[in-house]
């Protein structure tokens, strides 16, 4: 059912499914944080290696990952190419065609950026494929004490992603039927696109306003509320958090020992 676009695609009894969303979030944040803080190929490569090695344990197959996340590979390649093109040109010249100049230094920089992009993205993907938004909202509100009105408002809106995607398709057909289809030159197409986007936002706000009435009519918005399902931690969560910390520490240590650690703001 396309309305459930954002429900986790991972099934079964893997570690990630059993863990509380917060421990997964914690692990993903520390790994992302360390990889973010330094731009060097060692920390990125170490983190990426651990992430890939852990996949079987997490219940994620390489095939499933590639099916879902192939744009990630392209994005990493593009980022690597862009940096190699635009970085300071140090070292020997590797390629020089017209305005395009790649040197050893710039290509090394590109490789570091590409690896770092992959290492940054994977934790987010692991989180996305294994976490039900409802469970995440429960954990954020109950364990982290995030303001529940905002957490639940966002949760209700996220449920609408699938409906809005369907509505986008319907709007496209409805406009084609009126004589405003996705055809013609770039200017006409852009104008049609903007019109369709406006139509979607009108429908979205109408729906949201009605939804707000329905939620308020069911008592939503008061300061105190209870939770039908309790968000709990188990020993698995300690493991998930510890492994996350371990990978982050390992990546940082390796880069410092190798002398490649380059702090982001330096």
């Amino acid at each position: 059912m396309s309305s459930d676009l954002l429900t986790p695609s991972l099934a079964g009894n893997s570690v990630l499914i059993r863990a509380n969303p917060l421990s997964k979030l914690f692990a993903a944040v520390v790994i992302t944080g360390v990889v973010m803080l330094s731009i060097d190929w060692v920390s990125a490569a170490v983190a990426l290696t651990f992430e890939i090695l852990l996949m079987p344990l997490l219940g994620i197959s390489m095939r499933g990952l590639l099916l879902r996340a192939w744009p990630l590979l392209i994005a990493a390649l593009v980022a690597a190419y862009g940096t190699a093109l635009l970085a300071e040109k140090t070292g020997a010249v590797l390629l020089h065609v017209g305005p395009v100049l790649f040197t050893e230094g710039s290509v090394a920089a590109g490789i570091a950026i590409g690896l770092r992009g992959l290492a940054l993205a994977l934790p987010g993907i692991f989180l996305a494929v294994s976490t039900d938004p409802t469970d995440l909202a429960d954990a954020l509100a109950q364990k982290l004490h995030a303001p529940h009105r905002f957490v639940l408002g966002a949760l209700a809106a996220v449920r609408l992603v699938g409906l809005l995607v369907e509505q986008w398709q319907t709007l496209g057909l409805a406009r084609h039927a009126r004589g405003a289809g996705a055809e013609g030159n770039a200017l006409v197409r852009t104008r049609n696109f903007l019109g369709q986007a406006f139509g979607l936002i009108v429908q979205a706000i109408r729906r949201a306003t009605r939804l707000a009435v329905a939620m308020e009519a069911r008592g939503f918005g008061a300061a105190e509320r209870t939770w039908a399902r309790k968000s709990t931690f188990s020993p698995v969560d300690a493991w998930v958090a510890a492994v996350g910390l371990g990978i982050a520490a390992g990546a940082a240590t390796a880069a410092v020992l190798a002398g490649t650690w380059t702090f982001l703001l330096s």
Binding site: G153, A154, A157, L200, A204
Partner: peptide
């Protein structure tokens, strides 16, 4: 409440 819900849905719709 209506501010929260409409803000949330605007964000989601723009994302789509």
């Amino acid at each position: 409440v209506v501010d929260i819900v409409v803000a949330s849905v605007i964000a989601v719709a723009v994302g789509v």
